[in-house]
Design a protein around this nucleic acid. Structure first.
Length: 321
DNA sequence: TCAAGACCTTT
DNA sequence: AAGGTCTTG
């Protein structure tokens, strides 16, 4: 008889100092398009990165977290950096040119405490390689399928109290992951992705993106250390290297550097930022490249942070059109 | 140098 | 039409 899979219980809720977002700002930060592995249920957000699983909630205006007991050490060691608690976001936001930019001021007021996440670099790259002409819900679906079908299982073993990885998961027969089930798979690494046939990737609803992910995986797997070196480079050099990857253009490269490497000078120009600059800054008809140049000069060295406020506001309040 | 189209699939 | 990129002409 197979040993029964035992899940340990969750730790007690613990306060998380250094960030007091509104519920709306918390939702926008976790599930507004920076990351694709957070799921909200009631007032609890469940998120996954690397081999970590954690939950967040607001209580009396303060942020609390918990994780499976066996993952607690790993989560407590990485959660602060993931959420950007090691940076002074109030000071960073204050140094944006909101005093001379009424629209930016309005965006900041609408999302008080908005943060830029610092996700694992490789996982960020994978997420945004899935993102071309897709909406957030669909990107989350693709990423969930990649993890469920091709990622190592994250075990929450109460008996051993240790994380046991390296057990390959059986291919799921489900077409879609159960949103109520706790997430229990890591994203596949680039080394793992490199040996997955493109056909199998397409089964994860990736469409033409499967070809990019496959080719990028082969590229990275053939160059040990390439990803880590890229993350460590200054913005311009890191971006030049990311642009070598098939399927990575200006926008994806900037998203990876902003959300996966903490480079606040990255200014991704997607359709929402294009709309924002066209409608609120009079840049109607401008192409992405000139808009990016305008953004960097107008908003300065923290343009990526400004971009996130503009993006969130335009998506939530700007109207479709 | 640049404006279309193609590329997968789903809402 | 959807939070792009790559390839054409």
């Amino acid at each position: 008889m197979r040993p029964q899979k035992v899940r340990d219980h969750w730790s007690d809720w613990q306060p998380l100092a250094g960030w007091q977002p509104t519920p709306a700002t918390l939702a926008e930060t976790l599930d507004g398009g920076q990351a694709f592995r957070w799921h909200g249920a009631g007032d609890i957000w469940t998120g996954t990165w690397s081999a970590c699983v954690t939950q967040l909630r607001m209580r009396e205006g303060s942020l609390e977290w918990r994780s499976p007991v066996s993952l607690q050490t790993a989560v407590s060691a990485t959660l602060p950096r993931y959420l950007g608690l090691d940076r002074d976001w109030n000071a960073l936001t204050d140094s944006l040119p909101w005093r001379s930019d009424a629209h930016l001021a309005q965006c900041i007021a609408a999302f008080p405490g908005l943060r830029i996440l610092r996700q694992p670099f490789g996982e960020t790259l994978l997420g945004f390689l899935c993102s071309a002409t897709k909406q957030i819900v669909q990107i989350k679906q693709m990423v969930a399928l990649l993890a469920e079908r091709h990622g190592v299982e994250i075990r929450w073993n109460a008996v051993s109290g240790r994380v046991q990885s390296a057990s390959r998961t059986p291919r799921s027969t489900l077409a879609t992951p159960n949103d109520d089930a706790p997430p229990c798979h890591q994203l596949p690494t680039w080394e793992e992705l490199a040996v997955i046939p493109e056909k199998d990737l397409r089964q994860c609803l990736l469409g033409f993106r499967a070809k990019y992910i496959h080719a990028t995986a082969r590229f990275i797997a053939a160059r040990p250390g390439w990803l880590e070196e890229t993350e460590a480079l200054p913005y311009a050099a890191a971006k030049a290297r990311l642009l070598e990857l098939p399927g990575v253009g200006e926008k994806v490269a900037d998203c990876v550097l902003l959300f996966g490497a903490g480079k606040l000078e990255a200014f991704p120009v997607d359709t929402w930022v294009l709309k924002s600059l066209a409608r609120r800054y009079g840049l109607d008809g401008w192409k992405p490249a000139p808009v990016a140049h305008f953004g960097r000069t107008h908003f300065g060295p923290l343009a990526g942070l400004a971009q996130q406020y503009l993006f969130s506001w335009e998506r939530k309040f700007g109207g479709g059109r």
